[in-house]
Design a protein around this nucleic acid. Structure first.
Lengths: 174, 174
DNA sequence: TACCCCATGTAATCAGTTACATGATTAT
DNA sequence: ATAATCATGTAACTGATTACATGGGGTA
């Protein structure tokens, strides 16, 4: 199988499977509770990729447990493919931030409405900020340096947005 | 036409056309020099959307100028559709940042290689930071408050990443 | 006259979202 | 019993990238 065609989503699945067998459901949860700020997946994608990875022999489907749980285990060639993938230069970021778009064209929106959008977003970013901050001591105690680094970037991002919104809301037009 | 189906990419095109007629080429350039950090488009998308918007009567195709330039003008119903779109709650951000993924699984990469990836990214973020900073006085003089706000968010983002990388690189493993 | 940048567009493919459809287990 | 949550999966669609293909106009 050609390792070149490992896409980042497949790679993230293989990465998580290094810690032990996981089901599609587990993988979605793992992703949303760890790297969701920088990489998001849907269950459709995950189940599809798992099937695909199994066909390529990079993962092996385990026995169905309770509640139809179908755990997947990474194989030796899965580890090899992952090693190759992660040694390659990571690509550039792409971000889609609709609030920034709305802000850019903000002169076409009622100021009070724009401010309301900002406050709504602010609340969600504050909530995420607090959630992430709760994990800092956990990862510190675990000595999970790399995960901690990513966590800190997430915290930094949410803090940036919160401060930015506060700044925007300071302006005379509410 | 149903305004509900205005997607953010189409909306951004209509937004830019408020300033005057622009070609597909112009629109791609406008996007990449203003909101690229928070919204990216490809020319395929832009030319496709322009055709689509023209079919819906939201833009009007102008006469071909030199070099096959085909400028598009926003119509009255285009303005109306844009107004409706921008008054709607903006959706949540999605970010895909492969460097964060590589960092998260960083224990599987040679530390010196990971550091090299970081340095490469750092250089590009510094460059973008400097470019954006150059626009601050321009937008300030123009009194373009909303555009300036987005610019500042971009500056904040690149600064965040640069500082984050510096922090990561401080660790003993290069 | 040759090269580079401007400029438009299509085709093929890949990635990602949403809606639909189903069923098991646990907690109340 | 019943509701909530766990769990898997498919189908249809929409969005986005990449490669291909073409040609005009300016400048060295």
């Amino acid at each position: 199988m050609n390792r070149q065609d490992l896409n980042p989503t497949a790679a993230s699945i293989l990465g998580f499977l290094h810690e032990g067998p996981l089901t599609g459901w587990d993988l979605v949860n793992k992703t949303t509770t760890t790297i969701a700020d920088f990489w998001n997946v849907t269950k459709s994608q995950v189940y599809g990729e798992l099937r695909h990875l199994a066909e390529q022999g990079l993962v092996r489907e385990g026995k169905t447990g309770r509640r139809e749980r179908r755990p997947y285990t990474i194989t030796k060639s899965g580890r090899a493919a992952f090693s190759e993938w992660i040694a390659r230069e990571p690509g550039e970021k792409t971000m889609r931030f609709p609030l920034a778009l709305t802000m850019y064209f903000g002169r076409h929106v009622e100021p009070s409405r724009l401010a309301a959008f900002c406050r709504g977003h602010r609340a969600r970013h504050v909530a995420q900020l607090e959630t992430l901050q709760g994990f800092v001591p956990v990862l510190q105690k675990a000595g999970a340096d790399h995960e901690l680094a990513v966590l800190k970037l997430g915290i930094g991002f949410h803090a940036l947005v919160v401060n930015w919104i506060d700044d925007v809301l300071k302006k005379p037009d509410r």
